[in-house]
Design a protein around this nucleic acid. Structure first.
Lengths: 207, 207, 207, 207
DNA sequence: GATGAATGAGTCTTCATTCAT
DNA sequence: CATGAATGAAGACTCATTCAT
C-alpha cells in the first residue's frame, strides 16, 4: 500500500480519480451504503485495482474526510479580525453558501458522517475544529463588546450560519421538491434571503 | 404478515417495541447501515420474530417514516392565521426546536433519508409537504403585504427555521463537541439565540 | 398425532381437507417446492392446526402418495383374463386416460415423485407395483401366444399406455400451449387417437 | 457478471462445469428443490464463486433451459419432407429415443419444469415450439392426404412419440424397478417395441 | 381442537478483501 | 500496475416445527 511513498504521475492521477468517485458514492449512499463495486466502476477501475491504491474501503473514506475537512474550514480561517464586523460575517456566510453551491457532495459527505454520530471524525471535531470555532467566537465576542455587532451568542451564530447554508446542499431534494418549478435560480434567492437574515440580526440598534 | 388485521395485545406491544428499536438503529445508521440483527437485539427479539411482525426490513423503515412524518408536520399545521405574525412564527420555531430536543432520533431519521436523496419519501415531499409549505408561505406573504412582518422570502424563511432548529438534533455530536463543557444547557442558549435571530429578522422597521 | 386412533367426524373431515389441499399444492410445486403455509391456507386452517392432524410435512405427503397409489392401480387390476384381449387392453387404456382426465393432479403428483427418483415411493414400485405389472404382462403374453394379440412386448406395452395417457395430465400446459384454441375438446381427439393407435398395434395380422 | 463479455478459458470452463453440475442437480430435484450448495459442491466450487459466474440460481436454471431447448428440438427439425413418410417418422422417433437414452437428465429437467406448469419456459412453448410442431403436423397431414400414411391425428402422433420415448428417461426408476434384472438392455427392447408400435400404426391398409 | 407466538436451521445473495498471474 | 478468480463473513429472508395458551 504505497501510502507515503513518492507517487508516480499515474498513481497520483488514479488516487484522485478514486477519491472523486468515492466522494460521489459516499456522499449519496453513506459509508455503509456505498460499495467498492460502485466506487470502482465510477472510477473506471477494477475493484482490486482500487484496493491497490487504498488499503481498504475505510481508508478511502478516511482520506476523503480528512482531505476535505481542511478545505471545509478555510472560509472560517479567512475571517479578518481587522475587517468590518458585519461585512466580515456576511462575507463568511456567503463563502459557506458558495461552498454548498459548488460542493454539495462534500457537504452531504460530512452531513452523513455527523448525523450518524461522526464515528470516524470525532477527534477532528473535538480538537482542531473546536479550537478554531472557539477562536472565531472570541473574535465575534470582542466585536460585540465593542458595540460593532448586535449582541448575540457567537457560537450559535456560527452554528446558524452552518445550518442555513449547508441546508441547501444537504437537503437539496427537499428544497427542490418544494420549490419545484424554480430550477437553480432558487439558490440566488436563498443567498439574498440569508444576507438579509444576518444583516438584520447583526446590525446593532442605532440609539 | 398480520398487517391490517385487528391486533392482539402482544402484537401491538411487539410491533411498538420493534418500531422503537428500529428508530434507534435506523436513525443512527441509516437504512443500509442498519441490520435486522441490530434491530432484533435492540428489541429483545429474535430476528425471525421481528420478521413475523413486519414483512421486511424495508417494511419496518417505511412504516416508521410514514408514521412519523405526520407528527413531524404538526407544528406547521398549528400556525394560526389570525394570530400575531411575529409571535406565531417564533412560536412555530419554538415548537420545531422543541421537537428537535424531544425527538432527536426522529429528526436524524429524516435527515439520513433526505441527505441520501429521499429515495423512499420523495412522493411525500413533492406532494403533501409541498402543498402544506406553499400554503403557509402564502399566509406569511399576506402578513408581509399587510406590513405586519418585515419583507422576507417566505419559503426560505421556513427552510431557515427547519435548518436552524433541526441542526441541534442532526448535528448533535458536532454541537456538543464544540460546546464541550456545557452539558445540555446549551439547548436553552440555542433557543434564546434563535428567538433573537427571528425576532430581529421579522420585526418590521418602525418608520 | 392421532394417526391410528378412532377419529371423530371433525377430525376425519379436516384430515381430508388437508389432503385435498396438499394434493393441490404438492402436485404443482413438488415436495420441496410446496410449503406448509400454502397447504394450510389452501385448506383454510392454521399451520399449527395442520400439524395437529399430521406429524409433519413429510407425513402428509407420504399419506397422500400411499392413499392414492392404490386407486391409481385399480384400472390395471380390473383387467379381465377372460375378456376379449384387444377390447380388454383398449378398455384399460381408456380407464387410464379417464383417470388422467379426471385426476390430473394425482397424475402430476406421481410424475413429480418419480421424475425426481421416487425417493419416497421406491419400495412400492419395486414391490407391489412390479408384482402386479408382471402378472398382467404374463396374461398379455398368454393372449399373444394364443394368437389373440399381435406379438408385442407386454411390459413395454404397459409402459406405453402409461406414457401416452398420463402425458395429457403431466404435460398439460405443453399440450394446451400447442393446441391453443381447442379448449378441452382436444382430450376427446386424443382418446380417439389412442384407441386407433392401440387397436392397430394389437390386432393380429389376418393370414 | 461476466455474461456477454468475451470469456477467458477459465471462465468458459467454470461456466460449463457449473452448468453440468446444475443439470445434475436441477434434473433430479427440480428448481425449488435444488440448492446452490448442492450445485456448488457438485461443481467443486464455492458457493460465492458459482455466483461469480452466474448472477443467481435462477440465471443458471434459465441458461440451462434455453441452451438445451434448442438441441432438444433438433430431431424434429431434421424431418425430411421429401423422405419416405413412415421411415421418416420412425427415424424421428428413434432420434428422440436416442436422446432420452443419451441425455436422460436433460429430459427430466424439462419434465420437472413442465409438470410444474412450465413457469419459466411457457413462452418458448407457446411460441417457437408450437410453430415448429404445427409445421410438422402440416407435413404429416399432407402425407396422410396423399395416402402414404394411415390416417391419424398428426398432433397427437407427435405427443405420443414424445410421451413414449421420454418415458424411459423421465420415469427411469419406475421402468428399472419393474424390469429389475434386465440392466440396460431393456432400452433396446423398448426401441424395438416402439418401432413396431409406430410401424403398425402408420402403415396404410393395403387395399 | 385451535391458534398466536416464536425460533433454529437453512438458503440465496452481497461484499470487502485476498490470491495469483 | 492491473485484473480475473476466489472466498469468508455477514445479511435478508424462508420455513418446518415447537411452545403456550
Amino acid at each position: 500500500m504505497p501510502d507515503d511513498r513518492p507517487q508516480t504521475r499515474i498513481q497520483k492521477r488514479n488516487r484522485e480519480t478514486i477519491l472523486e468517485a468515492a466522494l460521489e458514492v459516499f456522499s449519496s449512499e453513506g459509508f455503509r451504503g456505498a460499495t467498492l463495486d460502485q466506487i470502482a466502476s465510477a472510477a473506471g477501475l477494477s475493484k482490486p485495482n482500487v484496493l491497490y491504491y487504498f488499503a481498504s474501503k475505510e481508508a478511502i473514506y478516511t482520506e476523503l474526510l480528512s482531505t476535505l475537512l481542511d478545505t471545509w474550514l478555510d472560509p472560517l480561517r479567512a475571517l479578518d479580525p481587522n475587517g468590518e464586523p458585519i461585512a466580515e460575517l456576511v462575507a463568511y456566510m456567503r463563502r459557506k453558501f458558495e461552498m454548498s453551491r459548488q460542493f454539495p457532495r462534500e457537504s452531504r459527505l460530512f452531513a452523513n458522517e455527523i448525523v450518524q454520530g461522526a464515528p470516524r471524525i470525532l477527534d477532528e471535531i473535538n480538537g482542531p475544529l473546536k479550537a478554531l470555532v472557539d477562536e472565531v467566537a472570541g473574535l465575534i465576542q470582542t466585536w460585540i463588546s465593542a458595540g460593532r455587532l448586535a449582541p448575540i451568542d457567537p457560537h450559535h451564530l456560527i452554528f446558524s450560519i452552518w445550518a442555513t447554508t449547508q441546508h441547501y446542499a444537504d437537503f437539496d431534494v427537499q428544497v427542490r421538491g418544494i420549490l419545484l418549478p424554480e430550477g437553480d435560480s432558487h439558490l440566488d434567492t436563498a443567498e439574498d434571503f440569508l444576507v438579509t437574515l444576518y444583516t438584520r440580526t447583526l446590525t446593532p440598534k442605532a440609539d
